[in-house]
Design a protein around this nucleic acid. Structure first.
Length: 284
RNA sequence: GCGUCGGUGGCGGAGUGGUCAAUCGCAAUAGACUGUAAAUCUAUCGCCCUUUGGGCUACGGAGGUUCAAAUCCUCCCCGGCGCA
């Protein structure tokens, strides 16, 4: 009771894409003397601006923003990287006597921070992954089962990404440690959302305006700076379909149609993730 | 008008006498998520019944052949193409 109340307060603003989280956060930050920490797996990359919906300097209205532009898109970035940086930023903000406001749509990143998830300290092993990628999920599952029956029992046996990472961990640590969580902050979480038809409309309008604002040029520029189309496709959504278009794999019409649909589907996936947290205060 | 190819589930598209409520892809719906998370993956997906199961209605329409038809035959309707 007491210990809970003595915990530092932090605010989280989340919700599916295109719900106006950034603007909402700026207004709140001004009111409560806060600083914003972005929780967006794409906005961490330098140069992914229009396509990722990164807030502009002007839109920040003087409110400090953190964890935007922290790495090069050619490099891989992960939750673990995010968590380390976010933990540090939170402490810094608190030490300044201000309130940290975590804002974004990447649920996995947000949860890792507010739950203080103890992710296994095992770095990605490129060579191992390359080898494992050649195997079928059935084979991968067998390997994991031998290494760590406990983890094998609960893992998604058909998801190669999950299986490979689990094997990677088990190979170095002997097994995959049970995930420990231990929330260290007193978190208040606000969720922003809209009814389906309205969110779809917002997604469509936003996509049009992104193209108008030179999103395609941004993609071309990124490529000319050495970002491969393969990597761009990995980044998903806007970047994925612009990369396909720029390679002539799809037409412009297909790109736009596919994007509207895929962004909507993404929004629904985000909602599914957020449903697990019953403490979110939804504003619709 | 003649010829020809075709009309299949929300869409695309397999199937060409039985093992078909009908491969597959897309969409849709629900979901998972321990360093790729805008990523990756799963389930369901004609209607009804509580079921490993059963019933019903279905493959443009109407008849017919057959023990059995989405699959064969006849006529009709619709679309593409070719020739007039």
């Amino acid at each position: 009771m007491n210990s809970k109340n003595s915990k530092q307060k932090i605010v989280v603003i989340l919700g599916p894409t295109a719900t106006g989280k950034s603007d909402f956060a700026v207004e709140l930050a001004k009111k409560i003397n806060g600083e914003i920490i972005s929780a967006d797996s794409r906005q961490v990359y330098i140069g992914l601006d229009i396509g990722s919906g990164k807030i502009t300097k002007k839109e920040m209205k003087g409110v400090p923003h953190h964890l935007l532009d922290v790495t090069n898109p050619k490099k891989e970035f992960s939750v673990a990287d995010y968590k380390k940086l976010a933990d540090k930023k939170i402490e810094e903000i608190i030490s300044r006597g201000k309130i940290p406001i975590i804002v974004g749509g990447t649920g996995f990143y947000i949860d890792s921070v507010i739950n203080d998830s103890q992710l296994p300290e095992v770095k990605p092993n490129k060579n191992l992954r390359k080898e494992l990628e050649k195997l079928s999920t059935g084979e991968l599952f067998k390997i994991l089962k031998k290494l760590d029956p406990r983890r094998a029992k609960e893992i998604d046996a058909k998801n190669p990404v999950r299986l490979i990472r689990a094997i990677e961990i088990a190979k170095t640590l002997g097994k995959v440690p049970k995930l420990k969580t231990n929330p260290k902050y007193n978190t208040i979480t606000i969720g922003l959302d809209f009814p389906d038809y309205e969110l779809k409309e917002r997604i469509e309008k936003r996509l049009i305006s992104r193209f108008k604002n030179g999103m395609l040029d941004e993609a071309k520029k990124l490529h000319s700076q050495g970002l491969s189309f393969k990597r761009m496709e990995q980044l998903g959504l806007e970047y994925r379909y612009m990369a396909k278009f720029l390679q002539g794999k799809i037409t412009e019409k297909e790109m736009v149609e596919k994007l509207n649909l895929e962004i909507w589907k993404y929004a629904k996936r985000q909602r599914t993730w957020f449903k697990r947290d019953k403490n979110i205060i939804w504003v619709k």
